[in-house]
Simulated scan of single mutants.
Amino acid sequence: MTAEDEEWFDDADGSLVRPYAMTGGRTRSDTLGLDLITLVVAMHSVTERDVEPEYERIMSACQFPISVVEVAAKVDLPLQVVKVLLSDLINQRLIIFRSPVAPTNEPPSQHVLQAVLDGIRKL
């Protein structure tokens, strides 16, 4: 390496693999509807499967139930990239997920609204 090459390359910058390369150019994981608070957990330990490094990092983070946003923070990858990679792992049945309960279209009861209002007034 020349002195000029050494100035350009910096180990502190981290991986030189771009997010689009990790996902194969995919930007969405439409089929599963993973949300920020969707819980995911690995079905197998990392040592049981031969997977690519990015998948291995995600599976390591998912040894216990964890939200999608927490996985992204632990593996230090963009959220959308993690959602695409998680979708791949879910489709391979290496990870399972549980989406949050969908909100109902029913308005809250008058009793609940009054209790919230009373609580705010006490502040």
Rank of each mutant, 00 (worst) to 15 (best):
R28C: 10
R28L: 14
S29P: 06
T31Y: 02
L34I: 13
L36F: 11
I37C: 10
I37L: 14
T38L: 03
V40L: 04
V40Y: 00
V41E: 13
A42G: 05
A42S: 15
M43H: 05
M43S: 10
H44W: 03
S45N: 13
V46H: 00
V46K: 01
T47K: 10
E48R: 08
E48F: 00
R49S: 07
D50E: 14
D50W: 02
V51A: 13
V51S: 08
E52M: 12
E52V: 14
E52A: 15
E54S: 14
E54M: 13
Y55P: 00
Y55V: 10
E56R: 11
E56F: 00
E56M: 04
R57G: 08
R57K: 15
I58G: 03
M59Y: 00
A61G: 08
C62M: 06
Q63R: 15
Q63Y: 01
F64G: 02
I66W: 01
I66Y: 01
V68I: 09
V68T: 15
V69W: 07
V69T: 14
E70T: 09
E70D: 15
V71M: 05
V71H: 02
V71P: 08
V71Q: 03
A72P: 07
A72F: 04
A73Q: 11
A73I: 12
A73K: 07
K74I: 07
K74A: 15
K74S: 12
D76Y: 09
D76E: 15
L77V: 10
L77T: 05
L79Y: 06
L79M: 14
K83F: 03
K83G: 06
V84W: 01
V84P: 11
V84A: 05
L85M: 09
L85H: 02
L85T: 07
L86D: 09
L86F: 02
D88N: 13
L89R: 03
L89Q: 04
I90E: 04
Q92A: 15
L94S: 04
I95L: 07
I96Y: 04
I96N: 08
F97D: 07
R98F: 04
S99H: 11
S99P: 00
S99G: 08
P100F: 06
V101D: 05
V101G: 02
V101K: 15
P103N: 09
T104V: 10
T104N: 10
P107D: 09
P108T: 05
P108I: 04
S109I: 04
Q110T: 13
Q110G: 03
H111Y: 13
V112E: 06
